[in-house]
Amino acid sequence: MPTFIDFEASSLDLISSFPIEVGICKADGSIFNWLIKPHVLWKDWSEKSESIHGITRHRLEEEGIHLVEVAEALNEHIPEIAYCDAWTFDSFWLHRLFRGAKLKPTFKLESISMLLDSYQVQRWQSTRNTIIEELKIPTHRAANDALILHKTWKSLQH
């Protein structure tokens, strides 16, 4: 069973955005989530993105965990590979997190498409929608979205 990862971010700008939350769902289904305290140089903020994920910059400043702690936790919890569903964005935010922490990831980030055959790709969205309905959890929160990836992938294995 693979490990899945998801990020929420300050915006969708691939030049100035930064990760604000990261969640993982490990092979055994256990989930972990970290709000990320912004690096002093990270200024980008989108009100539109905030309205989607519901995380305020003030909350990050108050409750966020320092970048180094988050990066170290990811290295500790993720084995060799973590899979995501938005590789371009997630790889950018992963890089920004680790660069800000002055650390290197001990794992590789891959697209979930690397795990899927053509039948599974065709069934992905409808299966994902069914999982979201069954779980009745909000999307656009990192741990929830990582869990949804895990459950969707698991469902497609049958």
Rank of each mutant, 00 (worst) to 15 (best):
L74R: 05
K43S: 14
H95Q: 14
D145K: 00
T127Q: 13
R123A: 08
Y119H: 08
S111F: 02
W87L: 12
T139D: 01
A73H: 07
L60I: 01
W34Q: 05
Q122V: 00
G29C: 06
F92R: 14
S118P: 03
S49F: 05
K48W: 10
L147E: 01
K102I: 04
R99C: 09
R99D: 13
T139W: 00
H39S: 07
E69H: 03
P38V: 01
K37V: 01
Q120N: 06
R96L: 08
S49V: 03
Q125T: 07
H58N: 14
I148V: 11
S30C: 13
W45T: 04
S51V: 02
W93S: 13
V68I: 06
P79D: 04
L94Q: 11
I55T: 10
N75Q: 07
S111M: 01
S118M: 06
S49M: 14
E80W: 07
H150N: 05
L67R: 03
V70K: 08
T56F: 15
W42P: 03
D85C: 05
A143F: 01
P138A: 04
H95C: 08
H39G: 00
S30N: 12
H53V: 06
T139E: 08
W34I: 01
I137F: 05
K102W: 03
R141N: 09
S46T: 02
E134M: 07
F32D: 12
I81N: 12
E50L: 12
L74Y: 04
T139V: 11
C25F: 00
F32H: 15
V121Y: 13
H95L: 08
R59T: 08
L97K: 04
R128Y: 10
Q122R: 13
Q122P: 04
W42T: 02
E110P: 13
A142T: 00
L67Q: 03
N33A: 06
E69A: 08
K104W: 08
I36Q: 10
N129E: 09
H53E: 10
E61W: 03
E47H: 11
D85N: 08
A27C: 12
I36G: 03
R57L: 12
W93E: 09
T56P: 15
A27Q: 15
H77G: 00
I24F: 09
I36H: 14
L149A: 00
I65Y: 06
F92I: 05
K108C: 05
S118W: 05
K108G: 07
I55L: 15
I65M: 13
Q125W: 06
L115G: 05
D90P: 14
K48A: 14
L97V: 05
I31W: 00
A71F: 03
S113A: 09
F107C: 13
H150C: 01
W45Q: 10
F98K: 05
V68T: 04
S118K: 11
S51W: 06
S111G: 10
E133M: 11
K136T: 04
E110C: 09
E50A: 10
A101T: 00
D85F: 04
R99A: 06
E69L: 09
L97M: 06
F89Y: 10
T56A: 11
G54A: 11
E133S: 12
P105R: 08
L74M: 08
S126W: 09
D90C: 11
K104C: 13
L97T: 02
L116Q: 10
I131L: 08
R57N: 06
Q125N: 15
L115A: 04
L97F: 07
A101V: 03
T106K: 15
